[in-house]
Design a protein around this nucleic acid. Structure first.
Length: 276
DNA sequence: AGTCAAACCTGGGCGC
DNA sequence: TGCGCCCAGGTTTGAC
C-alpha cells in the first residue's frame, strides 16, 4: 500500500541508482499495467532511452527520460519497482523489466496488477488528467496552513474522507490517514462541516508531522511494500492505531477499535479520539 | 454535486 | 487438509 512516504522512499532509492543509466532492453510479461500508449509502442519508445530525473507528485512517480519522454507510474496497492542484478532470476509477479546498461535491471512486480504506466511526451504532462486532478503537495514548502484551510473547507463528508481525497491533499492513503487523525486526536467520522479554524490548523500540522516521520522511517511495510533496493520500511514499528484492533492504545491504554469509514477499514482510539 | 458501490486482481486468513 | 468465502485498498467509472 504505497502512500506518499513509501513512494518518496522508492523515488530516493531509485534516484541513487538509475540516473544516467540507459535502457538497453524492455521485457514485458503482462500488458495490463500499461495504460498508454499501446504496449508494443510503449516498449519500443523506451528502448535506448536514458533516465534523467525522478520526481514525485502525490503517489505518482514521474520519470524523466532522454528525448523528452516522461514515464508516469502509480504503484497502487502492491506495485514494486526494484533495482537489482540482472542475473537474479525473475520473481513471481514480475511484469516488466528494464535491462539497464551495466548488468542491472529495474523491475516492476505487482501481485494484484493494479499499478499503472503511462508514457508521454514532456509537453503532454501538463494536460495529463491523473496529475491535474491532484490537490496540494503536503511536503512541499508551499503547503501552508492557510492554503490547506482554503482547500479543505467544506470538502468531504468526514475527516477520513477528507484526508483520502487526493484532490484536496495528494498522497495520503488509508494507513497515514488513521495515524494523522490519531495524532491530532480527531475522530475519523467527525464532520468537516463544523471544523473550526483551529481544528484545520491542528490537522494541517498533523499531516505534515506524520508524513515527514513516515519518510524519515522509509515508509511502512505492512504487507508487501519494499523500496527501490528491495528493503522494508520501518514505520510499521511506529504505528499507533493502524492494524492494532483490540490492542491497548500506547497513550491511554484503551482498546483500539476498527470500523468502516468512507469505505475503508478505519482504526482509532475511542478515548483519544472521542466521537463528536 | 457529492456520495457510494463496483470493478480491477491475488493472497491470506477464517470457518467449517 | 482443503474448500469457499471475505477482506485488504488506490483509483476510475457509473449509478443515484
Amino acid at each position: 500500500m504505497p502512500e506518499l512516504p513509501e513512494v518518496e522512499t522508492v523515488r530516493r532509492t531509485l534516484l541513487a541508482n538509475i540516473i544516467d543509466k540507459k535502457i538497453s532492453k524492455v521485457s514485458l510479461y503482462y500488458q495490463g499495467n500499461i495504460r498508454s500508449p499501446k504496449p508494443d509502442l510503449f516498449c519500443e519508445l523506451l528502448k535506448n532511452k536514458i533516465f534523467r530525473d525522478i520526481q514525485r507528485r502525490g503517489k505518482f512517480l514521474i520519470f524523466y527520460l532522454s528525448s523528452g519522454l516522461v514515464l508516469i507510474v502509480h504503484l497502487r496497492m502492491t506495485g514494486q519497482l526494484v533495482y537489482l542484478d540482472s542475473r537474479k532470476s525473475l520473481e513471481k509477479h514480475t511484469h516488466l523489466v528494464f535491462s539497464l546498461q551495466g548488468g542491472m535491471d529495474l523491475r516492476y512486480l505487482d501481485i494484484r496488477k493494479f499499478g499503472t504506466f503511462d508514457l508521454l511526451k514532456e509537453e503532454e504532462l501538463e494536460s495529463f488528467k491523473s496529475l491535474q486532478q491532484l490537490g496540494l503537495e503536503p511536503l512541499s514548502s508551499s503547503f501552508s496552513s492557510q492554503k490547506f484551510k482554503e482547500k479543505a473547507r467544506g470538502r468531504g463528508k468526514n475527516l477520513k474522507a477528507l484526508l483520502l481525497d487526493q484532490s484536496t491533499v495528494a498522497g495520503i492513503g488509508n494507513i497515514y490517514a488513521d495515524e494523522i487523525l490519531f495524532k491530532v486526536g480527531f475522530h475519523p467520522e467527525m464532520s468537516t462541516k463544523n471544523l473550526t479554524e483551529l481544528n484545520l490548523e491542528q490537522l494541517h500540522r498533523s499531516i505534515v508531522d506524520v508524513l515527514k516521520l513516515g519518510v524519515r522511517y522509509r515508509g511502512t511495510t505492512f504487507r508487501n511494500y519494499v523500496d527501490g533496493e528491495g528493503k522494508y520500511g520501518q514505520f510499521q514499528d511506529l504505528l499507533n492505531v493502524y492494524g492494532r484492533k483490540g490492542e491497548p492504545c500506547f497513550r491511554c491504554g484503551a482498546e483500539i477499535r476498527k470500523t468502516r469509514v468512507a469505505g475503508r477499514g478505519t482504526y482509532y482510539c475511542p478515548q483519544c479520539q472521542p466521537n463528536p
